[in-house]
Design a protein around this nucleic acid. Structure first.
Lengths: 234, 234
DNA sequence: CCAGAAAACCGCAATCACTGCAAAAATGCT
DNA sequence: AGCATTTTTGCAGTGATTGCGGTTTTCTGG
């Protein structure tokens, strides 16, 4: 936010034709390509070093050395050390948002929520996935308090976005607060179930997946009789 | 005491500052009392300065100066800056745990969960309360990303404790995963509803309280038909 | 191919959270 | 008072993060 951000370009690039490039790997200028390359290198190196030596024991300087940039430059790619771990969580959120916005006329709140859960929580190739936190990453996060905190904040912000989208997609059934409660219950139940599964059985993909499904079921049960908000009085 | 310029009572004679010694339940002497006093001073000064100047803009040294201790000593009271804000959240958790462990033979999971919510979320004198985060604190946390993260982590740990207790209190109805899902749905729904209420209407105690109640209702609805955990097929 | 503009990169210095260590001070006990 | 224990503290160091200013690379237009 304070300096250059890696997400959206703050201005229109002078002469860059924004042709049909879905992955940003084709068509663009060399400048952009190189930046994306360095970004990938940073994420990969960081995640690997975090796993090998631990999060706290790995310094930003070490990650930068692996990626071939100066430590100072790191902060023009990420706002901090934590962001390295949650760099591509946004994609997972967009997936959920697309599911919400693409509701059919016959879809119910409960149905869409279940679909979100299938898409983003329980249907990862590795076995489980919580907003982009798959296998390796999950273990890393679970063993690092600082990352736990960051993950929870990220999930919270994702929830807010999902709730807004859900309220917009079901204007008859939900207001903002109702949507917040619905999404919160869904995500909370899934995370709560997963947490206990991890706590008791370790990082077992099968158990985690089953636990998440149970969480989904429990939360969706509360959504099946969603009624319009009583009044907008507060 | 070489650098002491804030008028700290360093050379206080061993006389009682309170006068009467019957108030404190601890049989300890002056040493313990002084430590608790300093702890309180730190929390109070910190919270006030955070509110006045902002969390990030307030240094630990400033807080310590107000409390009359050396900066180094701060870390023998709290493990870090964040802990100052969540120092007395544990009490609220213990309240919830006592509710769970004191279940009556006729109480249902849904009923106990509703009771937890009443006790810990919505029944604060200030109007609302989320695991010890009342009024002032809530605003502070909501406006500080670092504190948001810390709060979420604290809530997560509290959830885990509550889930364990709930599973132990309802061994017939819930296993660990089911309890995790139940507590997660409850807390998640309440927080999600509160989040949206804050996002749309600001820090309005009445609206927040109403939103929390709606969150409780939604989550509890999913708990009313709690069945024993049927093992997952996969 | 060249000049100028824009963007990115880098080094330097500074602030601040946090930690380990050993001396100094306060306190408790006899 | 004299000794043991606990607490406080100063010092020095690591590492994250930021502001500033200079240098290099890439882009754009001629």
């Amino acid at each position: 936010m304070t300096t250059r951000d890696t997400g959206a370009p703050a201005g229109t690039p002078p002469g860059e034709p924004d042709g049909a490039a879905g992955g940003a790997a084709e068509g663009g200028g060399w400048r952009r390509r190189k930046k994306e390359l360095t970004r990938r290198a940073l994420i990969e190196a960081g995640l690997r070093l975090f796993r090998e030596r631990g999060y706290h024991e790995t310094t930003i300087a070490q990650v930068c050395a692996e990626a071939g940039i100066a430590p100072r430059t790191f902060f023009s790619y990420f706002s901090g050390k934590e962001e390295l771990v949650f760099a591509d969580t946004a994609e997972r959120l967009n997936l959920a948002l697309r599911v919400i916005e693409g509701r059919g006329p016959d879809d119910t709140v409960a149905g869409v929520c279940r679909c979100i859960a299938e898409e983003t929580f329980a249907l990862a190739p590795g076995g489980f996935d919580l907003l982009g936190l798959t296998g390796d990453r999950m273990e890393l996060v679970l063993s690092t308090p600082a990352l736990q905190a960051a993950a929870m904040r990220a999930v919270g912000q994702a929830e807010a976005r999902m709730a807004q989208a859900l309220a917009r997609a079901f204007p008859e059934e939900l207001d903002a607060v109702g949507a917040g409660a619905a999404v919160g219950a869904l995500v909370g139940a899934v995370m709560g179930a997963a947490r206990m599964a991890f706590a008791t059985g370790g990082t077992d993909a099968h158990a985690a997946r089953a636990a998440m499904r149970r969480g989904v079921d429990m939360a969706v049960r509360g959504l099946e009789r969603v009624e319009p908000a009583a009044d907008s009085g507060g």
